[in-house]
Amino acid sequence: MKFTTPGIAMLFALLMAAAGVRAGEVQMRGVSNPQQARIDYILKCQGCHRPDGGGDDRSNPPIKNEVARFLGVPGGREFLARVPGVSTVDLDDTRLANLVNWTLYTFDPAHMPADFRPYSPEEIGHLRRHPLRLERAETRARLVKGFSQDRAKTHSP
């Protein structure tokens, strides 16, 4: 195959597009290793929360289009690191922080606050030492009630 000028231009455009995708990944703040996060999600979360994070209200609550809304209510940021599935998982703090930040960006980009401060391994390590137990459903219901007001404005489109 001989490379013609339009061919080279096209190759260049493809390379730029690939670079664009990479840039998109880099924009996930606090995610140092997205491949690791993806596999950790499959191994530790997906079994119950489904491959697309969909869930349902009977078995496991949805992550998709929902999880980042907790960041907007008081106590929500702490809640996300203290729910049993997060706090008791057998991952170290660094991998868990990587996974939580990745999950927020991947499953609910629309609700990510512009000034999102990524979870650090230290913060995760501190919060997971006080995991939620039987009060988790009640805590979640209280927080969800808190963000029912912003549902009106975020659901405008």
Binding site: Q35, Q36, R38, I39, I42, L43, Q46, P51, D90, L91
Partner: peptide, 9 residues
């Protein structure tokens, strides 16, 4: 459902 990374846990 996937290929694990080289250092799975």
């Amino acid at each position: 459902v996937g290929v694990a990374l080289d250092q799975p846990k």
